[in-house]
Every structure is written in C-alpha cells, then in structure tokens.
C-alpha cells in the first residue's frame, strides 16, 4: 500500500515536472530558457552515464568524449550537409557511437576503478585533441555562429531561444522514452543481471562482453545526440563544455539522482548544473570551493552514496550478500 502511494506520488511529481518544463519558456526570460536548454542536453548525457554506471554497473568518467564527438560532428559535418535537426541528431549519434565503438576494446574487460581510470583518460584525451585540432574544431576558441537548424524537413528555422528549448525538450523526452522502453525489455534485464552477478550470467551461457560493448555503443550514441542538442541550444561549442569538471558534475548528478534511475539521473544532473550556474552568479571566484565542499558533503550525507536499486516487486531492497558495492567485480576466470 505504501509502495502504491509512493508510486502515485512519484508519478504526480514527474507529471508536474513535465508540465513545468513545457510551460517554462513562457514564464522566464530568454537567458534562463537558453540555460535550461543547455541543462537538458547535459541531462541527456547524465542519462547515458546512468545507463552505463547504474544499469550496467560500469562506472564511467568518460562520457564527455562521445558528447564532444557528437557536438563537433553536428557543428562541423552537420552544418555542411544539411540544416535539418533530425539529420544533425543522426550524424551526432553516429559520431558518438563510433567513438564509443573505437574504445570498446579498452573497456570491455575492465571493471570498477580500472574502468573509471581508463574512461577518464579517454575522455580527457578526447578533449585535449579537440582543443588542439585547430583546423577543424577552432581550438580552444571554439566554433561560434553555428547556423540555426529546422527540426524536420519543411518546418521553419528555430530562430528563438524558446523554439530551440522546445526542440531540445522534445528530443530529450523522446530519447529518454526510448531508453526507458528498451530497459523494460529483455535487454534491460540482461544488463541488470550482468551488473548483479556477472559470473552467473556467463555461466548460463550469455555473452557478457557483447552486452558490455552494446551498452557502451548505445550510451555513446545517446551522449552524441546530446552533443548535437548542446550545439543547437547555445549555437556555440568549445572544449570548455567538455572539461574534467563536466564529467565530475555529471557523476555527482547521477549519484544524487540514484545511479540506476534514468529519470533520477536527468533530475540530479539538472539540479547540480542549476546549482553550479547559480553559485557562479552569486559567489564569483568562490564557486569552485563551495562546489568542492558540496561534493565532499554529498558523499557523507547521501544515504548510501550510490544507492542500490530496489528490486522489482519487493518492498525493501534485498540485503546484499557479500558487500554493498554495486560495481561489477572482475569476472573470475578472465586471464590475459
């Protein structure tokens, strides 16, 4: 009964948030609308982080790499080929997926802190390359004046902040919906099973490396699409959008929102980014200090850091048998 009430409450809150998001551009100024659009793009990256970290149990700090790949693919290639948003999204998602696919050999057998380390190195190196490849990316100055797009063939160009925001909102809603739908199928079940007991999944004949590779590429595609949305939202892209602090903010948002909850990741990332933007306005110069202390405080205050997801159909989460660590243990029997 209590569970039903909680579920009803959550649905109510979710519905209220969606209505507020749709109505937001008519109630706040253009600057805030542009900020909101950018935040939504980051929220979509957080969804890809939650997909890897929470659902599949593969902690990552490197989702900024496909995010950046998608953004630059959309800004550089997309602008030359077409001005249709759907095409940009496709190109950006393909770029993000391609980058993720290239890094699959590096991540497929790594788990836990090794994976964090490799993904962080990949993400940082990707941003370094973006900053130095001046002829294509404009270096650290970035690419300004990215032309406006039209969402679909035959529709008008997105000329105002409000229109760009609504386009971002629709795309994020559709993509999050697709991710949620896919996670309700057998695919989601297999990913969760791999997170909870990889050795058993292997033993029952499932090809876990294929699942890991698949979820990496899928998360890369989602992050790439988010990159395209970022370019649409701010019509500008520079390496500063994909820095180390972005990865860490995303991670904080995902941990706050509940690592295994896709919607929670979106909300958590939005909260963290909003808090960051607000702090930079209120306390210029001191914002990183406050933010850093907030990180430390979050670790101590959160009930269990990365919370364990409740098991479907049970009131309380099952008591973990060995240790309360949701990361994947290194599979036994894997040797070089």
């Amino acid at each position: 009964m209590r569970q039903g009430a909680v579920r009803a409450l959550r649905r109510g809150v979710a519905a209220a948030v969606v209505v507020a998001l749709v109505l937001a551009p008519w109630t706040v100024d253009d600057y805030t609308v542009a900020l909101l659009a950018r935040t939504l793009a980051l929220g979509l990256v957080a969804v890809s982080v939650a997909l890897l970290t929470g659902v599949a149990g593969l902690p990552t700090l490197g989702q900024t790499a496909p995010y950046a790949a998608g953004a630059y693919a959309s800004a550089v290639v997309g602008s030359h080929l077409s001005d249709v948003g759907l095409a940009h999204l496709g190109i950006a998602a393909a770029a993000g997926a391609a980058l993720a696919a290239v890094t699959v050999p590096l991540v497929v057998s790594a788990r836990g802190v090794v994976l964090l380390m490799i993904t962080l190195a990949v993400g940082e190196l990707a941003v370094t390359v973006v900053g130095r490849w001046r002829s294509v990316t404009g270096g650290t100055d970035g690419l300004a004046g990215v032309p406006a797009i039209r969402p679909l063939w035959g529709l008008p160009v997105l000329a105002t902040d409000r229109a760009r925001y609504l386009y971002t909102l629709v795309v994020v809603a559709v993509l999050v919906g697709v991710v949620l739908l896919v996670l309700r199928t057998r695919v989601g079940l297999l990913l969760r099973a791999g997170r909870d007991d990889e050795a058993r999944l292997r033993a029952s004949g499932h090809r876990v490396p294929v699942h890991v590779a698949g979820v990496h590429v899928a998360a890369g595609a989602v992050a790439g699409a988010a990159g395209s949305l970022l370019v649409v939202a701010q019509q500008f892209v520079s390496p500063a959008d994909f820095g180390f602090d972005t990865s860490a903010l995303l991670l904080l948002g995902v941990v706050i929102g509940g690592t295994a909850s896709v919607g929670g990741a979106l909300v958590g990332a939005a909260l963290v980014v909003a808090a960051r933007d607000w702090l930079f306005g209120v306390l210029p110069g001191q914002a990183p200090l406050v933010l850093g202390l907030a990180f430390v405080a979050a670790v101590y205050l959160l009930p269990d850091g990365g919370r364990r997801p409740p098991v479907r159909g049970r009131l309380l989460p099952a008591v973990p048998a060995r240790r309360p660590v949701p990361d994947r243990p290194t599979p036994t029997g894997v040797r070089a």
């Binding site: 970290t53 902690p59 700090l61 836990g112 802190v113 964090l116 602090d245 860490a248 991670l251 904080l252 941990v255 690592t259 001191q286 990183p288 200090l289 933010l291 850093g292 202390l293 907030a294 990180f295 430390v296 979050a298 670790v299 101590y300 959160l302 269990d304 850091g305 990365g306 240790r323 309360p324 660590v325 949701p326 990361d327």
Partner: peptide, 22 residues
Amino acid sequence: VAARNHLTQALLTFGVALAGGS
C-alpha cells in the same frame, strides 16, 4: 567512506581537488 563504491571515492577526491584548487 572506504567501504562504499568507487563512485563515491571519485566524487570525494574530485571535491577535494576542486576545493583545493580554488
């Protein structure tokens, strides 16, 4: 927080890095 997972460790050390850098 050592008994927790790697994510909280990463968050904590990053918080220290941000605050220390500032």
